[in-house]
Amino acid sequence: MMKTYNQNLPVNFIVMIVTVLLISIVMLNSCTKVVDIKVGNDTDKLVIEGMVIDTAGSQSVKLTTNVPFSNSNTYPPVTGAIVSVNDGNGSTYNYIEGPSGIYTSPAFVAKAGNNYTMHVLVNGTDYTASSRMPELVVLDSLSSKVSPFDSKQREVTVYYKDPAGKANYYRFVMFLNGVQVKAVFVFNDDFNDGKKVSIDLSDDDTDMFSGDKVTVEMQCIDKSIFTYWNTLMQQGGSGPGGGVTPSNPPTNISPSVLGYFSAHTSQKKSMVLK
């Protein structure tokens, strides 16, 4: 016997079925749609990367121009600039160029609490930036452990004691077998003021295995530099010279250019991953 179906379905039910089908079609089409992310391509702009640190050796300012986001890591140097740094206590250090685009000072050791001001004169424009060096927070130690995502890979953990009662900002720079890892690691003490802190440093694009040598530099940075690097970290960026980012981070240099000037402490520890 041939099976028959009720032809008198409620109109609301039919409308509901049609609506579900239409939504399904739209969702299927959206799955195949190509999303075009537009990345800025404003190139040939001045990039200033300046820093003073609290360890012996030459202080440096690097001047380059930026390149398209997809280009290789080759950045044209900016030569012939006049560069100096004032320590806020009456001493000015004039920098000397060499090699091209790298300007260094006679050796001086920057001190915590001093407010340092950089001047860079390029093509008639005087670019200035100030940064106050924070007090040193000691990097206690490093350890390594098995990655929770891959038993063959390792993660690095840093340990330090955050001082209580004041805002502190930190940047960590990691080197794997002598090569700097591109990932940006910055943190504040909003949730661990005055506590013993342990932070895992891991990067999805970096493979670390037992036997690799890792060096970690801990920098105590001021708030403006934290804002700069935190913006880059949120974007997944790697630094001011790394092409044009989707949104260039806020700089402390005036007039505004790409880059930063940072007065920060610097301490390093190394270990072989187990």
Rank of each mutant, 00 (worst) to 15 (best):
I23W: 05
I23M: 08
G90W: 05
H119I: 14
E97W: 09
S130P: 04
I102R: 13
T117C: 06
S130T: 12
A129E: 02
P134V: 07
T125M: 11
T128I: 15
I53D: 09
R132Q: 14
A56C: 07
Q59E: 07
G40A: 13
G113C: 04
V67W: 05
G90Q: 04
S105G: 13
A129K: 06
G113Y: 05
L21C: 07
V83N: 01
N71S: 15
N66E: 02
G80K: 00
T74R: 14
P134H: 08
G50F: 06
V35Y: 08
I48H: 02
A129N: 05
V47D: 00
V137E: 09
M27N: 04
R132P: 07
P68W: 10
T43F: 03
T64W: 13
S60G: 06
F69L: 14
G113L: 07
A56D: 07
V67E: 05
G90A: 04
L139V: 01
V78D: 00
N94P: 01
L21H: 00
T79W: 01
V39P: 03
S100Y: 10
V85R: 06
V109S: 00
I53M: 12
N115Y: 03
L28H: 09
L28I: 12
D87N: 12
D54A: 07
F69P: 11
Y116L: 12
G113N: 03
K45T: 01
L21D: 00
T79S: 06
G101C: 03
I53Y: 08
K111W: 00
V52M: 07
Y116R: 10
D140T: 05
T117A: 04
L136M: 14
V109R: 00
V67R: 13
P99A: 11
S105D: 11
V34Q: 13
G57N: 01
D140Q: 07
N94L: 09
V47K: 00
M27H: 02
M133F: 06
L28V: 14
N123T: 09
I96A: 15
V120C: 13
K33H: 10
G40I: 10
P77W: 03
N86Y: 08
K111Q: 04
P76A: 02
N123R: 08
T19C: 08
P77T: 02
T79C: 03
G90Y: 04
E97F: 09
A112D: 00
G98V: 12
T55Q: 14
D36L: 12
L46G: 05
S131K: 06
N73M: 15
T92L: 03
D44Q: 09
S105A: 14
Y127N: 06
N115T: 12
D54G: 08
G88V: 09
K62H: 11
G113R: 05
M51E: 15
D42E: 10
I96C: 11
S72A: 14
T125L: 11
S100N: 13
D44A: 10
N41P: 04
A112F: 04
V83I: 05
V83A: 02
V52L: 06
S60V: 14
I96H: 10
S130I: 08
P134C: 09
V47G: 00
L136R: 15
V61G: 01
I48E: 01
M27R: 09
V137A: 13
N114S: 10
F108D: 00
G40E: 07
N86G: 08
P106L: 14
D87M: 13
S72N: 15
T117D: 01
S84R: 08
G90N: 05
D140G: 03
